[in-house]
Write a protein that binds this DNA or RNA. Structure first.
Length: 561
DNA sequence: CTAGGGTTAG
């Protein structure tokens, strides 16, 4: 029976990590996994044929060299269809104007109550609050669910004062808050990182005759784990389970929270212990639980176990989702295995899982890193054609990418396109452009971009200054470099080792060894971590100028002092 | 109809 084999996999995994001294040996060979993934993709593709009409027939997307093209053909199709759908949804969804029109034409209180909920969901909180007070002055008190929507909306934007005001009003004049009200409010404080306040709210619930439920506990356990208080979370849970005589079992979500937390602390054995308990109770894992396992294995560099989980999901009929696939893609990108990332992209497209902004971001960044900037730019164009305007990081990666391969013209045209589409240029955008210009030694262009930053209010950061200090030093413009250095101090930026190293290099280039050494002592005494670069520069300089002996004595003195 | 777990991070 299939179930037995699933269990045995987890048992094997658990056994492997239960003893720290046991040698680590792979459960499955890498080739077996590649075979499995290939089979999987082919099988799934057959049932999702309509998703891949755009891909060339005969290619399974895995052949060396063929993969990228197949992936991009499918990708284009998917991006178009996903974004078209999104566009339609956006256009048909309620727009605040429509709600406002409703407010002015209707006298139906229930309809206005529904409008408060919609306004809350859309984040139009001032209007929502105003409408609530209008209804109350007309002697109609919106129900508890409407109030919960409002409390929820205020908590989500971190406006706890307003949420607190609403809950007080509810307690004073109704509608009486329920468990969901408190859960929402507690979650609000957890999001702010104020777990103490959350816990005290939890204790106060009894005073209002409201019994906390599983959701309340999960919110708090999650918050405790996130604060690194896993022990606290366990104790809290033990207390709860002691009180609940009829149901002593931990639910799936609680277990998922705990497993995730154990994995994040690198405690695989404990995570798998939790998993074993869950399976012994006969619980079925859902997609989130599997995603936690996959992420846990990936972040502990156990890619084979992660793939095994992927296989288990498929066998159990649990469709991997965009998070599952992004987790793998992220892992591969992080370890420079970008071909594998593209393979995962191909698998997800074949499975009919639509990529999201995170997928696009990782793929675009991966392509740029690899120098395939035109392909990255093509993804961007696809998104724009479908009226999805990506966040600045995608644009910035492409600008960096073009800059790195010396294509300043295209870098600039992406920047201009950004402006045209109303995407705000940020410090990273300017840094990318400055990087591109400095690469072709266009110091004037770079400096005029810095002026543009000052005017636009996008303040230069340490990276901007370090690039400019480096460039001016290389050109022998030490005075200019020092001016920049003073400016950064005035603006409250502390120069780092890179800044000082650039200045040392600049002085050495000019033959001003004394000044170079002075700077070196300044880093040494500032308590900054000194790396080998400035030492190397100085030693090289000394070797050339005065011989090795003297340079060694420089460092001897330092180490003695 | 509202409240709980997972993915990114220049």
């Amino acid at each position: 029976m299939a179930c037995a084999s699933h269990y045995s996999f987890f048992a094997m995994a658990a056994a492997r990590f239960s003893s720290l001294s046991s040698p680590r040996h792979p459960i499955f060979g890498y080739d077996a996994i590649v075979m499995f993934v290939k089979d999987l993709a082919v099988n799934v593709r057959d049932s999702c044929q309509q998703m891949v009409q755009g891909s060339p027939s005969g290619s399974n997307g895995f052949d060396e060299g063929e993969a990228p093209r197949a992936v991009f053909n499918v990708l284009d199709g998917i991006i178009k269809s996903t974004l078209d759908r999104l566009k339609t949804v956006r256009e048909t969804l309620s727009v605040p104007e429509i709600i406002l029109a409703k407010i002015s034409t209707t006298t139906d209180f229930r309809e206005l109550e529904a409008a408060i909920r919609l306004l809350s969901l859309e984040g139009k909180l001032d209007v929502a609050l105003w409408l609530r007070s209008k209804l109350i002055t007309n002697h109609y008190v919106p129900d508890v669910i409407t109030h919960n929507h409002l409390v929820n909306a205020f908590c989500k934007v971190g406006c706890l004062e307003k949420a607190d005001y609403l809950v007080r009003e509810m307690l004073a004049q109704g509608p009486s808050p329920n468990c969901a009200t408190f859960n929402t409010f507690i979650k609000g404080y957890c999001l702010k990182g104020d777990v103490d306040k959350a816990l005290s709210l939890f204790s106060s619930m009894a005073n209002y005759g409201i019994k906390p439920n599983r959701i309340t506990c999960n919110i708090l356990i999650h918050a405790l784990c996130k604060e690194g208080l896993v022990e606290g979370a366990r104790n809290f849970l033990a207390e709860i389970l002691k009180d609940e005589s009829e149901r002593k079992q931990i639910d799936l979500i609680t277990s998922t929270i705990l497993m995730d937390s154990y994995f994040k602390n690198g405690d695989i054995a404990e995570a798998l212990d939790q998993l074993t308990k869950l399976l012994q109770e006969g619980k079925q894992l859902d997609v989130v639980a599997f995603n936690v396992l996959i992420h846990g294995f990936c972040s502990n560099q156990e890619i084979k176990l992660a793939f095994s989980c992927f296989g288990e999901m498929i066998k159990r009929g649990i469709q991997p989702d965009v998070v599952t696939c992004n987790t793998f893609i992220s892992y591969f990108c992080k370890f420079g295995a970008f071909d594998e990332a593209l393979n995962m992209l191909s698998i997800m497209l074949n499975m009919g899982v639509a990529p999201d902004c995170i997928t696009y971001k990782m793929i675009v960044q991966g392509l740029c890193l690899r120098g395939e900037v035109d392909k990255a730019a093509k993804i961007l164009s696809c998104m724009l054609e479908n009226s999805t305007i990506p966040e600045p990081v995608i644009w910035n990666s492409i600008i960096y990418g073009y800059g790195k391969c010396g294509d300043t013209k295209n870098a600039l045209s992406i920047k201009e396109k950004m402006v045209a589409f109303g995407v705000p240029l940020n410090t990273y955008t300017y840094n990318a452009m400055i990087y591109a210009l400095l690469k072709e030694e266009n110091i004037n262009g770079a400096l005029s971009l810095k002026r543009e930053m000052d005017q636009s209010g996008q303040v230069p950061d340490l990276v901007t200054y370090n690039m400019l200090v480096g460039a001016t030093c290389n050109l022998g413009l030490i005075q200019f470099a020092l001016q920049l250095h003073d400016e950064m101090l005035r603006r409250g930026y502390l120069p780092d080792v890179v800044t000082y190293t650039e200045l040392i290099k600049g002085y050495c280039l000019k033959g001003q060894d004394k000044e170079a050494e002075e700077i070196f002592f300044r880093i040494w005494n500032s308590g900054l971590q000194v790396d080998h670069v400035p030492c190397h520069i100085l030693v090289k300089r000394h070797c050339r100028a005065e011989g090795l002996k003297q340079s060694l004595s420089l460092f001897d003195n330092l180490l003695d002092g």
